[in-house]
Nucleic acid binder design. Sequence first.
DNA 1: CTGAAAGCGCTTACAG
DNA 2: CTGAAAGCGCTTACAG
Lengths: 340, 340
Amino acid sequence: MAVTLKDIAAEAGVSLMTVSNVVNGKQARVSAATRDRIMRIVEDRGYVPSASARSLAAKSSRLVGLLVPAEDEASLTISPHTVEVIGMLERELRRLDYHLMLRGIAHRAEITEALRSWHLDGAVLLGFLDAEIDRLNVRTVGDVALVAMDCYSENPLALGVRSDDFGGAALATEHLAALGHRRIAFAGPGFSATGVVRRRFEGYRHVLGEHGIAYDPELVSAVEITRGDGVAYGRRLARERPDVTAVVTTADLLAIGTVEGLRAEGRSVPGDVSVIGYDDADIAAYVTPKLTTVAQDLPGKAAEAVRLMMGRLAGDARPAAATTLPVRLVERETAAPPRS
Amino acid sequence: MAVTLKDIAAEAGVSLMTVSNVVNGKQARVSAATRDRIMRIVEDRGYVPSASARSLAAKSSRLVGLLVPAEDEASLTISPHTVEVIGMLERELRRLDYHLMLRGIAHRAEITEALRSWHLDGAVLLGFLDAEIDRLNVRTVGDVALVAMDCYSENPLALGVRSDDFGGAALATEHLAALGHRRIAFAGPGFSATGVVRRRFEGYRHVLGEHGIAYDPELVSAVEITRGDGVAYGRRLARERPDVTAVVTTADLLAIGTVEGLRAEGRSVPGDVSVIGYDDADIAAYVTPKLTTVAQDLPGKAAEAVRLMMGRLAGDARPAAATTLPVRLVERETAAPPRS
DNA sequence: CTGAAAGCGCTTACAG
DNA sequence: CTGAAAGCGCTTACAG
């Protein structure tokens, strides 16, 4: 059997409580001498505290969930963007001596279940629709410290962390407009449902206005952010709207597909059409031509998520305002002045 | 407060035990009538069992760890290959009502700590060196069901799941040899330490022999599997060994970098030099030219890892033999007959 | 500075 | 088919 507090206490000839205090670093409550003696025994016996016992007895589990939408039978689709966030969250939490539980959510009820059954201290919700976050209430969530990433829900139960989506798309559109483009298309998924895409769309439209370019709804397309959908979109665009000379997209993968689709129809990038991606995923630099794209501050986003969560766990009662992280344009090879 | 078994029992007018039996589906032990009544109350009150209480009282936690090597202060580096595995493991485990804990391991001792503190039922070790798996002993591991992925350690404490590494490299080399190549280089990381790379190297060398091609140690290079290292390698190869007409690599990213480096030095791919990747990651199909590569059965690997683990948890005492999954060549655009 | 008691929410035998 | 008792390994007040 694994060694327990009791074993250590017996060997040291002290009470359970004293060992507990030593193990938890409550220095003030134990003399240096007994502390050293106990520590030595702990080391020798290779004592590891039981997290389940601890989380049952204490109010804290030191467990944080990373909840990601999932299909029932499908494996988690983890975008390049999500991967970065996972890796960074894990590091931040590990540093603070927390553990990370990764969970796909196929049904609404599973959120509550995950939070409750493991007594999670906090959770990061990644990639949920605003509406789903809106629906969270105290009954389902309890007092878990929730951080919703890339979400524009006003629900005070979830602290928000996101990038400057309006600004990112504005940056991309501005770059194209400054290059001389006038017919600029916009492609992204789920307009109505996801606030992120909506803000980016608004950034695009805003800059159009600033440059006196009339907004043309026909130039805006709902396209899923996969390479395949991008290819289809690129082909369609080339055939149906040959007048378009530039495209703002909401994801690198989508942009990469768009470039391919365009080329498949005989249009060159950036000769005939400029394309700008979003995220600056690793692949953006691998493809040919290398993708001009909008980079998010992913490490900042992960760090901020953890910072907000720890703040709430430490007792910051007032719901902090949503944090918005800066964004920047990475100029590479897919944006150039229009021909003529 | 959250509702507990006791609350449900009180409301139903039965004992705690009966509710526990109902919740855990021990049908035989409760009459249909009380079962239905209890279930209704459970639903109404939104009862969620406490996993920590359960794992403390029972021998099982229904928690599985995914342990990945990490640097102390660095965020987890999750390769495209690892991402797939994570997503698939999560799905398989979720289906079986297990939860996944993701943990970076910076020091040896953290493995024990992770396993013990959360009473993990099992763990998948992903990306560790064979030597690290070798060192695992019963004292550090207890009776946790361990699966080591992509590892050739003989340690019976960890069930092995891997692809046919020898066969994969053999397939790639065979393809090149059949195309007419005679000077075929091999590039991969950490030869001595990682069994995976060693087997692939052996596959390469074996096929060379079969084709009567003399083995030239100078054609074998230790290169980290990043795109940057690949670029450097490609340039070096172009300058120092212009006679080489083909390269077998152990990773897509490395292959992609190699192609770039080769081209930067004025060599064309596959015109002057053929390059074959490994893994068939998504990016392999995105780059230009599209990468010819060796595909692993990733879903199979994840499913097999879970299957083995569940077998052990169900009591398969005898250590199952390591499982080896098949591999296949995906022909795309980076391999062609040599010039001349 | 140290300890005895109660309790966190379950499950595991064991009775009836 | 149902239940009372003991215990899993800790922490939290509260005493001394």
